[in-house]
Design a protein around this nucleic acid. Sequence first.
DNA 1: CGTGCCCTTGAGTACAATCAACGTTCGTGG
DNA 2: CCACGAACGTTGATTGTACTCAAGGGCACG
Lengths: 239, 239
Amino acid sequence: MIERHLMRLRARDDIGAAEEAAIRGAVSVIRPASPGTVLVRAGEEVDVSILLLSGVIARQKDLLDGRRQITELHVAGDFTDLHGFTLKRLDHDVVALSACSIALFPHRRIQEITEQHPHLGRVYWFLTNLDAAIHREWEVSLGRRTALERMAHLFCELQVRLKLVGLADDGGYALPLTQGAVAECLGLTTVHVNRTLKQLKDDGVAELRRGRLAIFDLASLRRVAGFDPAYLYLEKRNR
Amino acid sequence: MIERHLMRLRARDDIGAAEEAAIRGAVSVIRPASPGTVLVRAGEEVDVSILLLSGVIARQKDLLDGRRQITELHVAGDFTDLHGFTLKRLDHDVVALSACSIALFPHRRIQEITEQHPHLGRVYWFLTNLDAAIHREWEVSLGRRTALERMAHLFCELQVRLKLVGLADDGGYALPLTQGAVAECLGLTTVHVNRTLKQLKDDGVAELRRGRLAIFDLASLRRVAGFDPAYLYLEKRNR
DNA sequence: CGTGCCCTTGAGTACAATCAACGTTCGTGG
DNA sequence: CCACGAACGTTGATTGTACTCAAGGGCACG
């Protein structure tokens, strides 16, 4: 249930039995969400955070004239809005991009955890800082990478993050996104995403079809992207 | 000395005398930094965080071929790398863009603070989440805003952040950046920044000259930017 | 008073956007 | 089971914003 979340934590930190119990005890409601559901609206006060069990969820920001940017994608095991614990309201929407299963984590319990399990509190602080590191890498993509590089970089990032929770291998992974959603991640138009996907496919690198990314050649994909996973902080940390 | 930092904290939260004492007691060395100094190198292990007392500091990421993106600007009162406390090493450089004065804040003291002053711990967690919110807004700029909108938006953001610590008013503020540095913030080239600045000036909105941004018409600047300061979380929070 | 950095402007180019049309897939109801 | 509609995907033609390349000007500092 929250196994993928624990996998994600344990990839980087030792989590003791008492800490695991605290986490398990904090999770309340579990429920499904269908594609397109807005789970949290920007500006709205929040007193729970959402733990994503399966599916893909986006953080997205809209401009008044309809332009839209997705600022981060979330996969199974991620908190989609742990930062809401300190921010109290979000500056962005949280939207299900595919069929999802989510669990709710009341902020009251997060506060208890930070006070009773300081190490676990730091682990959760780390998770929000990891989201910020991902934002920074996306800023680099949006500001300095070409369309092809951006796309390849996104696919590399998701490959690593999904592999960490057992949902990807070197040959690909489930990626239930429309080309429009990919465009909103990459700061491009749907049309240009379509052409860029075609180029990746024609070059024998990867192909996105029917909700699955097939990676023909992971080394090529990483080369095209100029991918360095350091920003994902994959190494194990000490207490 | 760390007055601007306290101003920044108190703009959003009540900070008690014991908390203030804990902060003051944690700050060790104070030293200057000249323009261009790299204060922290990406990948390097860190055990202190930097509190900026005056000047402008950038977080910047470089690609192998020399392309560079600044992911956030810091002004007096900001921590430039509080996230280093949980990340242990940074995914970006920290670079002085102007003459600066900085104070060092050992991570050991941050850990003590979070354990002895849980509320203050949450305030510092909040600060790192605020940086993430700024990153998200920059993603929107880089992905979806035009050059003119991006530039106006950056100038609006800095106006608000500097006003909070008493370093800006509606007529402008000191902004000791080269056009090249502005370009690295906005994902543009120096040449295009020069032309976009000229447009802002010719339109009677604002002018950047000799290290100072003169704002002719703040309302116009905000209109051009489509600026909404909600992402800066300016409202006072309760414990 | 020269040297280097930064700023400015012009001319030509390219990457991605826009506009437009058509094709495909999938879910739904008849 | 098939017909239909809507959403998603594909392709072509054209336009435009921002990049590149290039050269000259201003200013500060030694």
